[in-house]
Design a protein around this nucleic acid. Sequence first.
DNA 1: AGCTGGCACTCGCCAATCCGGAGTGCCAGT
DNA 2: ACTGGCACTCCGGATTGGCGAGTGCCAGCT
Lengths: 338, 338
Amino acid sequence: MLSERRLQVLRAIVQDYVGTEEPVGSKALTERHNLRVSPATVRNDMAALEEEGYIAQPHTSAGRVPTDKGYRLFVDKLAGVKPLSSPERRAIQNFLDGAVDLDDVVGRTVRLLAQLTRQVAVVQYPSLTRSTVRHVELLSLAPARLMLVLITDTGRVEQRMVDCPAPFGESSLADLRARLNSRVVGERFTEVPQLVQDLPESFDAEDRGTVSSVLSTLLETLVEETEERLMIGGTANLTRFGQDFPLTIRPVLEALEEQVVLLKLLGEAKDPGMMVRIGHENAHEGLTSTSVVAVGYGSGDEAVAKLGVVGPTRMDYPGTMGAVRAVARYVGQILAEN
Amino acid sequence: MLSERRLQVLRAIVQDYVGTEEPVGSKALTERHNLRVSPATVRNDMAALEEEGYIAQPHTSAGRVPTDKGYRLFVDKLAGVKPLSSPERRAIQNFLDGAVDLDDVVGRTVRLLAQLTRQVAVVQYPSLTRSTVRHVELLSLAPARLMLVLITDTGRVEQRMVDCPAPFGESSLADLRARLNSRVVGERFTEVPQLVQDLPESFDAEDRGTVSSVLSTLLETLVEETEERLMIGGTANLTRFGQDFPLTIRPVLEALEEQVVLLKLLGEAKDPGMMVRIGHENAHEGLTSTSVVAVGYGSGDEAVAKLGVVGPTRMDYPGTMGAVRAVARYVGQILAEN
DNA sequence: AGCTGGCACTCGCCAATCCGGAGTGCCAGT
DNA sequence: ACTGGCACTCCGGATTGGCGAGTGCCAGCT
């Protein structure tokens, strides 16, 4: 167990390093934080911290730099979440209030987050899996061709084509539309399958095939549409990384373009609280020199999607966490208001 | 007017520089291209080309590098468009054929272009302005609240909320839906306003307000939705730019995030042929060290949107142009098949 | 025991210097 | 009109030396 002062020293190192981007030495530490001990003492503490693996020196006889383990301790024990200033909060609210549709909400959120944290922002579109059905619409495009439109409570719209095994009359269509909606509107996606399974039986034999096609397409859409989409922004902030550029930035850009990777990453943010992944804690190789801060957001009590930022391990964790949390809350509000 | 040989020299310089990324000298030129003259002669030609502003030397006594003007001449007069190999074409077709919906088509196109050209790809969603209405759907969400869904022939779906001044019955709704569709389906967006302007008159006085609301929302959607969306990809390819990174890459990333800028840029690609903007020909400041190759694509004979790539001025123009053109054609086909 | 000041030592960084080589422009000769 | 020769320029990389920041250790103090 580390003594109280050693923890203070670690905290000071993290803060200074984040501020200056340069390895921090014992003398500078004692000057900038009133630790009330001499540099020599701090040196001893640093040696101990290094022994434990919380800090490291880039080269012999340079200052110390926090390791991933050091940041981890800092985040878990030494720092809180820094709340935003109230002007900032007002700015967020104003900015998000101007959104006209779901795409716009997500787009604005990305820009906001990127600007606020000066890092790369990632926002997942509200997932279909947790949300409820607002409306199902059926349109006849051709005698044996339907379009199925699914509208969710988060304002998302998905459409699918359905090829009918047999022509399907306008009246049957209206009938199916009405029955379908009366059963599934307001229901969770997970409930839908059992709610509609007996529908084909109540139709004439000739229409039954088409009804089944429609239903299976609907179910497919509900399930398979866990193929979540996401939007990223603020990649220009990557240029603030360091100057050993090509090597650092490249894998990150590549990882960001692999939506699968990002979705998996965000998916690991479990519902309660905020996820902070530091450096090598990230499974993906391209992100081992970055940290990810993510949190779920939702229109109601439950998270329907995630959002977060990707930045250098050397980031302002309290500030970033505060911004991410605040944005998530406001987006949730906006979605709830619909 | 430059002599034939001088043009050959310019072509050789461009080709070599694109290949090696290093200023090219007179000796290397004579070795790699059989110009059948001595280095000294080439030097004279180079001096003349420099005099005319087609090439420049980074520092006294280094090789020559093409200027924007030099590239321009190269593209206009000295090089054609390099067709893709047939395996490449097959690969394109296969890859695009797997797309399931419009988002997927655009997403795949972006990835394809980025991979093929090893540059940043930009693809604009098919524009609404040129396309036709496939279907208009009206849903009643609440007594005085409708949802308007517009489906285009390119598979795009837009939805809008409509607040009604008065409750609107189910039968009126069906009536409006039917009349609306019979008038506008298959029509160009530009035709729609005059086709529907007399619609409110044929409704009861109490419904007229709602009908007007619906129509004005529809027209808004048609017009205002020239707010085109686009997708970009392959930003990781920016790392191949050079090593003077932060300064070069930063403004480009910033420009890429400004959709307005990109849309304006793509908009400048006039219908016939391909647009090539080289270096300072680009209005936007962040893109003055890049070249843009763009072309329109469409489901039929007419272009409905643009796609292209952004890369260093030092790029393989013939190859890039070939890839862009080929991809545009195949995407057009896919859209036409719908 | 824990803290402190002192001291010798280690290295990375920076600036200055040097040198080789590639490339040029010019000129005289064919 | 082209070519070979030649002197010149200047970039880039390698080398060097000095500086300073930072360290570890130790002896002494509280």
